[in-house]
């Protein structure tokens, strides 16, 4: 599904990613771990198409299509979804209106009919229950005045509605208490199927107790220095990131 080769990326002239290789197949969950500043969020944002990052080398293919040629909205319409580390507040735009607009733009781009307001409402009511999202959040402006946990749940809720093929969760666990973490993880797990895939970016092993990955990659100084299965996450948790810094990465 996704094939990243020798990816180099800069922000404000500073090189952050220094040659990433990663392949993600349908049905897989990949965890990307690493200390602060290793480039985890950069990778997530480059995949989503954030304009501030310049890709200087390498390729990203989504089903043999060059992802780097696509705008953020085109990527979303092809099934890429980024759950933001810091979800953005948008005053004056209701959550429901925002989501329906997004869903219909994606549906239109994929040759599907737009969903009318009644069908949409019925569908999202169902999905909200799953994410344990408060009904009144639907009619409030996007993320405005939401608690940290509500914002993260709202990201997962959007994911549940838009049903992406490849979801990238950028430190969705940061700042969540254990109950919210469980809700978020349940949301992800209930969406997992053999056709979609997840990249879970996290600093801590904790989230991976709930979202069990097929593969774990350790990112350090802009490169994947170690890949393995879920046991690697436990090993990292035990030994800490200093273990990498002492040269054990390679």
């Amino acid at each position: 599904m996704l094939k990243i080769q020798n990816l180099h990326a800069n922000i404000e002239g500073k090189e952050i990613l220094k040659g990433i290789d990663l392949q993600v197949n349908p049905g897989e969950v990949h965890a990307i771990m690493g200390p602060n500043g290793s480039g985890k969020s950069t990778l997530a944002n480059v995949l989503a198409g954030r304009e501030e990052y310049q890709v200087t080398q390498g390729t990203i293919l989504l089903d043999d299509q060059n992802l780097l040629e696509l705008s953020p909205e085109e990527r979303a319409r092809k099934g890429i979804f980024l759950a933001f580390q810091y979800p953005v507040e948008i005053p004056g735009v209701s959550n429901a209106y925002f989501l329906r607009t997004a869903l219909n733009e994606i549906r239109k781009a994929n040759g599907l009919e737009e969903m009318d307001a009644a069908d949409f409402l019925m569908m999202i009511r169902r999905k909200m229950k799953k994410i344990e999202l408060d009904n009144d959040l639907l009619h409030r402006p996007v993320n405005e005045g939401f608690s940290g946990g509500e914002k993260k749940k709202n990201e997962i809720f959007q994911m549940a509605v838009l049903e992406p093929r490849l979801a990238i969760l950028d430190e969705t666990d940061s700042g969540l208490d254990i109950d919210a973490l469980r809700v978020v993880a349940n949301g992800v797990n209930s969406l997992r199927n053999e056709k979609n895939a997840f990249i879970v970016v996290t600093h801590y092993q904790r989230l991976l107790d709930y979202i069990v990955p097929d593969f774990v990659h350790v990112l350090y100084k802009g490169q994947i220095v170690k890949s393995g299965t879920k046991e690697l996450a436990l090993e990292l948790e035990e030994k800490g990131y200093d273990w990498l810094k002492n040269g054990n990465g390679r």
């Binding site: 989503a48 198409g49 954030r50 304009e51 705008s71 953020p72 909205e73 990527r75 979303a76 319409r77 979804f81 980024l82 933001f84 979800p87 953005v88 948008i90 925002f98 989501l99 607009t101 997004a102 869903l103 733009e105 994606i106 781009a109 996007v142 959007q158 838009l162």
Partner: peptide
């Protein structure tokens, strides 16, 4: 960017 990342042109 947030809106665009959800598929909105």
């Amino acid at each position: 960017f947030y809106l665009k990342s959800r598929g909105i042109g």
